[in-house]
Design a protein around this nucleic acid. Structure first.
Lengths: 330, 330
DNA sequence: ATAAAAATATCAAACGATTGCGAAAAAATT
DNA sequence: AATTTTTTCGCAATCGTTTGATATTTTTAT
């Protein structure tokens, strides 16, 4: 079966293509009666406008691109879900590509986006991306880029992110409230700006408001590392009474150890993390956490994208605020 | 900055558009020297072919659509990730839309796909979808549809799915091996064919090979329900010694109760589930599970899609085999 | 030197829609 | 009845690419 086109409709109705086109978009030039006829036939023949032709003609694509390190991730998937939802409600479709934290993939993904003339891209840098030239080039081509989560330091770009400092501080506050004496704080990949922000805010706050609390700092780039780190700190000599986990991956590792060693939460140890909430609620008692919602971030990013596409470049950095969610682990 | 087009290149090189086009695709008609010139200029001007124009002209889009109930899901996200990866390696980009288990969304998603002339769609039906006419229509338009996970019963369609019966049987085998006396088996949404398949296979196997084992069957459509179901069965009178969880959602609920009531795994109770492995490994001891890999399924689906696009319709139903992964919970 | 063959490049018509401009028909005004 | 205005529609160019057919030039063979 051949697709119905304007041409076909026009032929069947003995009208010109332009008339049909206008009738379909309710153009004032066209009489009500012909509009009715056109619509009726279009309906019965399932006319579906060819997006390519439209995009070619109008030079605007109604497609947005999203680059994430991995789709299969508790944070990114909710971000994507939010962006997709907002996009669909606004007549856009999303194209999603994964970089696998590989800058080369990132480049080829961007190429696909450019070739498909997406009208905007949401990008999360892969952890080792250094060269931002491509993104600069996209801006020159007037394809707005909104960065999220892992964002460039450079402030020529538009970014949305969690209020990382606030997150860390809220966690610290609750640790102090618990009256912790020996704290283990495990942070993520040391190279990421997100880690640096969270760590320095956390450290500063603890020093300023609870200088006597003894804090040990560690980094874990994987669940496995977190698990091992936790094991080290769980032996008698340096037993900690509170542990802070910067990410879900870390929390998972920590909880494995805690369960394995049958340490009682919250009596023997308090646990607090930064998360979107899914993982913390898997355990009993639920782990208290500072909520960072990929969903919220996605919505914010979309708004920012629309703003960028409409008006001139608004080169700002927006943040989603955090909130503390009480579990039973503190 | 205006985009570089074939036309522009042609003008600058004093060549015709068609020559430039052919040079760029290494057509034998064009001499090596002009090819070199063309390529050089194209390079320096960052020429990127306009996908819309190509698709309009060639009537083939190099875009695949994926419909899932939700992106933010441990199974679907890995399926998507696999499809995306395979697609990219084969020159396709994927467009992903969520139905939220709402048939209306499903319809409008399909519309978007049609308008964007995707060259194929991977579809997971929403749980309440009854009307398959749209999908039939896509087939008529020669847009192959590969169903996965929640698939139509109708065998006019191509489907890939887990070997559900085998999964259930493998679980049952291991339950029998454990020498269970009182088993609680919690299954998912009763309306889904996937549930029915798993349940009937499980039941039959247990009856055939361990008729004396007492089995209680329950359904839970959410984590909350599973949690409560588990609570009911955890009191003394009807204490069970083994629990089977058909999905991750159920496992999570069950484990919450188990942790809350401080029931010892595997001594007091054995736990086994069907999962992709992420959730089972969160606990200590790791939960034994029958592995159903969204990733594998995605790869299979992609192969099937390619086959459908190339050759004639191969209206088959393919399954991904399952394997048992020993945790410490049995 | 001429014809035939091979190599190289161009023309022009699509693909399906949008849109400024002009034309014909109908309605309103004088 | 003649003219103007309004309504309704068609023409044709355009977006960027592909591709069969054709033209031009070069090479090879006669």
């Amino acid at each position: 079966m051949t697709n119905t086109t304007l041409k076909l409709l026009a032929q069947q109705l003995q009208l010109s293509i332009s008339t049909v086109s206008r009738a379909l978009k309710d153009h004032p030039d066209i009489s009500a009666s012909t509009k009715a006829k056109v619509n009726a036939l279009a309906q019965s023949l399932d006319y579906e406008p060819n997006a390519y032709a439209i995009q070619l003609r109008t030079q605007s694509s109604k497609i947005l691109g999203v680059i994430v390190p991995a789709i299969s991730n508790l944070f990114y998937d909710s971000f994507i879900a939010a962006v997709e939802e907002e996009s669909r409600n606004n007549g856009y479709a999303v194209m999603i590509l994964q970089s696998s934290h590989n800058p080369e993939n990132e480049l080829s993904n961007l190429k696909i986006f450019r070739q498909n003339r997406v009208s905007g891209v949401f990008a999360c840098l892969s952890s080792s991306t250094e060269n931002l030239e491509v993104y600069q080039k996209m801006n020159e081509r007037e394809i707005p880029v909104v960065f999220f989560d892992i964002v460039p330091k450079d402030n020529r770009f538009t970014k949305v992110r969690m209020a990382d400092e606030r997150c860390a501080i809220m966690a610290a506050e609750n640790i102090i409230k618990r009256n912790a004496k020996k704290v283990l704080a495990i942070f993520g990949d040391e190279g990421l700006s997100i880690t640096q922000k969270r760590k320095s805010a956390f450290q500063k706050f603890m020093q300023d408001f609870a200088p006597k609390t003894h804090c040990s700092y560690a980094h874990a780039a994987s669940t496995k590392e977190a698990e091992e780190t936790m094991k080290k700190f769980a032996d008698k000599k340096q037993k900690v009474d509170t542990v802070f986990c910067m990410t879900d991956e870390i929390l998972i590792g920590v909880m494995r150890t805690i369960q394995e060693l049958q340490i009682k939460v919250p009596n023997e140890i308090g646990v607090i993390s930064i998360s979107n909430g899914f993982i913390p609620n898997l355990y009993y008692p639920h782990i208290s956490y500072v909520e960072t919602s990929g969903h919220e971030l996605g919505k914010l990013a979309f708004i920012q994208m629309m703003a960028n596409m409409k008006g001139g470049k608004t080169l700002t950095e927006l943040t989603v605020d955090a909130k503390f969610v009480e579990g039973g682990s503190m």
